[in-house]
Design a binder for these strands. Structure first.
Lengths: 219, 219
DNA sequence: GAGCGTTTTCACACCTTCTTAACGCCCCAG
DNA sequence: CTGGGGCGTTAAGAAGGTGTGAAAACGCTC
């Protein structure tokens, strides 16, 4: 049973949405105003949020921003405005999809399905290589059951190596993925971070071996 | 949930593509210029890239080449030009498929399906000669299932020989490909590296034979 | 602005790889 | 028979890549 939160000021629209959602098996809660919507989101912990952009008081975009500060719940935007700029702004601020009023019920439900499905498959994208686990979503890595405390760069580095575990990864490949914006001297700092990473990995079944003149390999 | 990256300068085309892809359940990110596209590819790690050949600044073909230096993500080329030469160039440089604008949405999605499906069974560009495999992207070589530990020069040498497996390769040809910047005495060091390579190949069904006065041949 | 963690830079020791040179072998021509 | 050219092999110095510690620069929070 999934729970949905509707943040929408027009009562008629709320009723319509509630009917639609409940017919689809959702548990529904509502809020008619932005501030209240945020409170409900915190209390009820919905699995999906339907958010009207044209809210009185705090605008829908602001609600979205505030919500995204602490939650990654899927958000479906509702709006009468078909303006590209606002749509883009909402998506850039973490909205998952966008429906323009008036909309067909079939379309709404289809889009809900999509972002719900996305949520489950996105749940914990992680890379496993032997005793090593790298959780991309939460930026956590662990060997066996012991968590590793890594800096962002170290994490990105480990991620690249773990993605191709057991195979050689060229220095070029590593640098381009860890430092996408070109920096001064690529291979200079790489050695240092490899060094740090090796120390943190220790001797727990995972090691980074160098292939001289080519790159590195995670075993 | 797959992620797609669109590298395309025309905004209208980007919008069209985004709609198409999102309706198909893709998560979409965009770039309107080549350099930025490469950065996005590194940041976002898309599962498929749609690349316009007619980009301003860095041409689409250059983007493809740069991308292929470190990534083997499937790439679908978009272009208005229906010229056979460019099409061939793109495919030779690692593009997976090619769509000519204007195209039907059904065609695009069908081709996307194909290269996505291919992605799982797909392997990186490699040269196979009997029991010998030379993986160019990962700089790995193996005989049967046993990996070979080669130095960069040895790898380059083996690559040249394997490319023309069974045929004679002139000493001149070898030297020019292994040492692009001309060094002092070509055939001097070549003998040494051939020697090293022979030792590492051992007696496992692959051998380098000399054609006196001409060059070498891989059997 | 101070303090802290992170990233980058730098210097130097160490190791692998490359180059060069030397030598012996085989084959073939003189 | 003999000398030379091409080749295989080995060894050693040269060149370049790598590991590591420390210091400086950077970015963020308080």
């Amino acid at each position: 049973m999934s729970k949905a939160l509707i943040i929408e000021d027009e009562q008629q629209m709320r009723r319509l949405l509630r009917m639609l959602l409940e017919s689809r098996g959702y548990e529904v809660c509502e809020a008619d105003e932005g501030q209240r919507g945020l409170q409900e989101a915190a209390f009820q912990r919905p699995d999906v949020v339907l958010l009207d952009l044209g809210l009185p008081g705090m605008g829908g975009l602001d609600v979205l921003k505030r919500l995204r500060e602490w939650s990654d719940v899927p958000v479906l935007i509702l709006s009468v405005r078909d303006q590209e700029t606002i749509k883009v702004q909402a998506l850039e601020n973490g909205a998952d999809d966008y429906v323009t009023k008036p909309f067909g019920s079939a379309e709404l439900l289809a889009r809900l399905d999509v972002i719900q499905r996305r949520r489950f498959t996105r749940q914990s994208p992680e890379i496993v290589a032997g005793p090593l686990k790298v959780d991309l979503l939460h930026h956590e890595a662990q060997i066996g059951d012991e968590p590793l405390k890594l800096t962002p760069t170290e994490f990105a580095l480990l991620k690249v190596l773990a993605e191709h575990a057991g195979r050689i990864v060229t220095q070029n490949q590593i640098v381009k993925q860890v430092w996408p914006v070109q920096t001064s001297d690529p291979s200079e700092g790489l050695r240092v971070h490899i060094n740090h990473l090796r120390k943190k990995l220790g001797v727990r079944g995972v090691s980074i071996v160098n292939e001289p003149g080519i790159g590195y390999r995670l075993e």
